[in-house]
Nucleic acid binder design. Structure first.
Length: 917
RNA sequence: GGGCGAUUAGCUCAGUUGGUUCAGAGCAGCUGCCUUACAAGCAGCGGGUCAGCGGUUCGAAUCCGUUAUCGCCCACCA
């Protein structure tokens, strides 16, 4: 074995092995455990957030596989509609100075597919490199034929039930991409603007009502002027009409207490239902006309009269000037406001009235809420159930249409001039076609088929809807579409619903909630019973990692630098109950000249791998000598057990039960920490060091052989327990130390043997360890090298203690580097010796010529003072009547014990002080 | 504006039902070691009024209230 763990070479080998043996495929035996991967967007490469998400899932999958579950994890990627189209369009513009309209729908979509192929391949490479054990033979893409079929069927079902409708709605319009953008794809920015107050003239010429606005250019779209019903200033105008400047339309003055705040501005509001969300709601309340004054590109249209064709700031200036010319402008104030911008194009969002498709949420949302309320779907941490419920509780209809070219084209055909008879004749009793009359005449025909052929309604034109579906529509089907729904596949039968969904908090509403909804609709059941929400990784300053900030970390860089297991270990360590975790990022030049983002936080993972590796490397020849390098564990002989042997077995079994619990409870940071402690502290620092003398014996005596048997048991456990987190190194070590045994990915998860867990032994060990620490402390104080073997005397208070300590003698002499340990009841302090008070006794180490009496005096005095102070505090507490009467007996006893200990320290140190000269 | 988190050592974070030697880990710092498994290591040391204030309690990092700062989600002011 090499002196350092070499991840690259080992990882390559195990990728091959797992692949060759199809270890990631379901075993076909046992209870099912299944998951679907949250499909990464094909917009770009994976980042650290994915690494974390996928590591956690893989831990769960590998654990359950080892527990004997029939385990399936389905991988795949998401077409990410608008995001992907936007990156490809941006590139088109940059490289060729062309827009999508220059090359047309077909050519653009073709280019996006190419992009997708490139990035899907890259993402898949990254995922595989992480060692995650998905069944790659089932890899899906949200736009592939299997998923497309599911989408058509889901749409069809909802359409037939009347849960999908088409309507005019105010949407967030991206004037650059010319598409509706979802609320969550908008960010707000503070923009310095103005607040214009002008006169709204009454139609009858009797005066005006002052009104203030930040958007004067929308005035041509006004269809009412609203005031507060209780506003004395304007009460008298309610029911009258005012005249819209420029277009000379009369519009009513209405009373609306929801829209209008008496105290704000002029206390009057111009209502433009087609171009403002609040006005839109007001328009619906008062049944106002909605006049669209914008073209899709954001310029004013013919409804704007003389301003037709003007856009943005120009339009605004022209309108303000017009108002001024007519003497209507009263004042201009500076005003800062929040303006919505499209996340994709970074341009200003216009509220815009357009034809869109919606899913009715009323009933669907209620059902999905119930699933969480009644505990069918459980969130971990629990608090996240709240964001889910709050969001669904709004029951806002979901706008599912997008004016894009990349995505699932809506399976609707418009037929404007056919009669119902024509349709009946064309489609007869077909169950895969459903139609109903459109609001403004004609028919909407929905088909489960891929494409209705031209001439499907003889003599009438059927034109396919151009819009595509919101990406989340196909993502919402992911758990069952990946398993082949709507076909009744064996996979669905065996593995649906899935067991756990692992994701991050930002898509609880967008994705998690919608999966529940669609699963309930399509499958009649929930899609998963547990949702584990893991923290989000931020940079050292608490900022989201992003391309634009340049603070993102590429998992593959980390794998190369530290090893994949190291990356995975650190990912698990980050998974606390927290909502964010910070990872300080550091730029670093690589030997090849490349600059990468990395973090010192990964060192612990690499060091840990190396530690484990070296422990095994050390033991290897000795295990070989003992005949333990085999797929059969050497039997242990309990007769020969020393204290440390029983201790390490107790620790092992405690760790088994802890680790199991941690995974079951999604406490991955603790899992990583427990395993780290066990391997580093218990096995390496303690057990191996204690046993070193035995291990290094040349001859294989019974004691050594037993030690090697114990160590193989311990290593067997470590390898199995660590495997879900660190799959590569554990397979490699298993193959080395237990040749011929089953691969760790398949071997059984260990069960804790409760009979070997012994708190008494762990306590005895702790006492021995306290003595060791005293020895080390004395060495540190006097700079005595650990290589210098020391003679020592351990004075104990009574025979019982002497006997107990005798059983730990090996521990103390080995770890303390002692030449001798003379255990005596109430021993006299040897001359020139340093002392240390330990539980039940006192340790003396003669240090003639080294001991510095004055330094020793100062130390003892300090220690005495400290112990006295502490003792006084405890006495005070004990003398408190309330404490004595109310605290539980255990606590009282513990306090008395502590007091005795402190008093003991004082007595012994004082004696030592007296004997110093 | 509504909701949810966070605030503990220089940095990143633990601290599971309130028990005081329970203030911890890793990293960073300092001291000493190439002690034949591991310098990606070993041994030791220093370092924190647990954000502030108030309350409950015999007892609070832990429970309640409140303030401050930071972050996230949702809704958004004509």
């Amino acid at each position: 074995m090499e002196t350092r763990y070499n991840p690259r070479e080992v990882e390559a080998r195990w990728h091959d092995q797992w692949n060759k043996n199809q270890d990631f495929a379901p075993s076909g035996k046992g209870k099912p455990f299944s998951m679907v991967i949250p499909p990464p967007n094909v917009t770009g490469a994976l980042h650290l957030g994915h690494a974390l998400n996928d590591t956690i899932q893989d831990i769960l999958v590998r654990y359950h596989r080892k527990r004997g579950y029939n385990t399936l994890w389905i991988p795949g990627t998401d077409h990410a509609g608008i995001a992907t189209q936007a990156v490809v369009e941006k590139r088109l513009l940059k490289d060729e100075h062309k827009t999508r309209h220059d090359i047309g729908r077909e050519a653009l979509v073709e280019r996006i597919w190419k992009w997708k192929d490139e990035y899907e391949a890259r993402i898949t490479r990254q995922l595989k490199s992480l060692g995650i054990s998905c069944d790659w033979s089932r890899q899906r893409f949200t736009l592939d034929p299997v998923c497309a079929k599911a989408v058509r069927h889901a749409f069809f079902n909802l359409f037939k039930k009347g849960l999908i409708y088409r309507g005019k709605r105010l949407v967030n319009w991206d004037t650059f991409l010319q598409t509706a953008v979802a609320d969550d794809e908008i960010y707000y920015e503070n923009v310095k603007g103005h607040f214009w107050t002008f006169k709204y003239p009454l139609s009858d010429g009797s005066g005006y009502i002052p009104v203030a606005t930040t958007r004067p250019e929308t005035i041509m779209g006004d269809t009412a002027l609203a005031v507060h019903p209780d506003d004395e200033r304007y009460k008298k105008f309610i029911g009258k009409t005012v005249r819209v400047p420029f277009v000379n339309r009369d519009i009513p003055v209405i009373a609306d207490a929801i829209l209008v705040d008496k105290e704000f501005g002029t206390g009057s509001v111009k209502v433009t239902p087609a171009h403002d969300p609040n006005d839109y709601a007001t328009g619906l309340r008062h049944k106002l006309p909605m006049i669209n004054i914008l073209n899709p590109d954001g310029s004013l249209n013919e409804n704007a009269g003389e301003f037709n064709g003007l856009k943005g700031e120009k339009a605004r200036e022209a309108v303000v000037k017009g108002l001024e010319d007519q003497g209507l402008l009263l004042k201009v104030e500076d005003h800062e406001m929040q303006v919505g911008h499209s996340d994709r194009s970074k341009t200003t969002i216009e509220p815009y009235l357009s034809d869109q498709w919606f899913v009715k949420m009323e009933v669907l949302a209620e059902n999905a809420m119930n699933a969480v309320r009644n505990g069918e779907v459980k969130f971990t941490p629990e608090r996240y159930a709240r964001s889910y419920l709050d969001w669904l509780g709004e029951k806002r209809d979901w706008c599912i249409s997008r004016q894009l070219w990349w995505g699932h084209q809506i399976p609707i055909w418009h037929c404007d001039d056919a009669s119902e008879e024509d349709l009946k004749k064309a489609f007869g009793t077909r169950e895969d076609v459903y139609y109903y009359p459109a609001q403004n005449g004609g028919w909407l025909i929905c088909s489960q088929e891929e494409n209705l052929k031209d001439g499907c309604v003889p003599g009438h034109k059927c034109i396919r809807e151009e819009d595509v579906l919101d990406t989340w529509f196909s993502s919402a089907l992911w758990p069952h579409s990946t398993m082949g729904w709507p076909d009744a596949t064996d996979t669905l039968k065996t593995f649906y619903p899935t067991s756990v969904l692992v994701t991050s908090r930002d898509i609880i509403t967008l994705w998690v909630a919608r999966m529940v909804i669609f699963s309930q609709e399509n499958m009649g059941t929930i899609p998963f019973s547990h949702v584990y929400i893991h923290p989000k990784i931020m940079d050292g300053q608490g900022r989201t990692m992003s391309k634009s900030l340049g603070n993102g970390v590429d998992p593959m860089d980390i794998e190369e630098k530290y090893g994949t297991d190291a990356l995975r270990f650190v990912m698990a360590s980050l998974c606390t109950d927290n909502q964010d975790v910070r990872l300080p990022v550091k730029k670093e030049k690589q030997p090849d000249g490349r600059e990468i983002n990395t973090s010192e936080k990964f060192e612990i993972g690499r060091n840990f791998s190396n530690k484990l590796w070296n422990a095994c490397r050390f033991l290897y020849p000795h295990l070989e000598q003992a005949g333990a390098l085999s797929n059969k564990l050497l039997p242990m002989d309990p007769e020969l057990f020393a204290l440390e042997d029983r201790w390490i077995l107790s620790r092992l079994n405690t760790t088994i039960s802890d680790a199991t619990r941690m995974i079951e409870e999604y406490r991955f940071a603790e899992l990583a920490q427990f395993l780290y402690r066990f391997v580093w502290d218990d096995v390496c620092s303690s057990y191996l060091e204690i046993k070193k003398a035995v291990i290094n014996r040349e001859a294989l005596d019974a004691e050594k052989k037993n030690a090697m048997a114990i160590l193989s048991h311990v290593l067997r456990g470590v390898i199995d327990l660590l495997h879900p987190v660190m799959p590569f190194i554990t397979e490699e070590l298993n193959a080395t130390l237990f040749p011929g045994s089953e691969r760790v990915i398949r071997s059984e998860w260990p069960a804790a043997d409760k009979s070997l867990i012994d708190a008494g032994i762990e306590k005895a060990f702790d006492r021995a360890f306290a003595v060791v620490e005293s020895v080390r402390g004395i060495r540190g104080r006097y700079g005595v090298s650990p290589a210098t073997k020391l003679a020592s005397v351990l004075s104990v208070d009574d025979d019982a203690t002497a006997k107990a300590v005798e059983s730990c003698k090996a521990i103390i002499t080995e770890l303390g580097g002692l030449e001798s340990l003379d255990i005596q009841v109430k021993a006299a302090k040897p001359k020139f010796s340093a002392n240390a008070v330990v539980p039940g006794g006192e340790l003396f180490i003669p240090l003639k010529g080294i001991l510095d009496p004055s330094a020793e005096k100062a130390r003892l005095e300090k220690e005495i003072e400290k112990a006295k102070g502490f003792a006084a505090a405890i006495e005070k507490k004990l003398s408190n009547v309330n404490f004595a009467s109310k605290a539980p007996a255990q606590v009282l006893e513990a306090e008395r014990q502590k007091l005795a200990t402190q008093k003991d320290i004082v007595a012994k140190d004082e004696k030592a002080l007296a004997e110093l000269e």
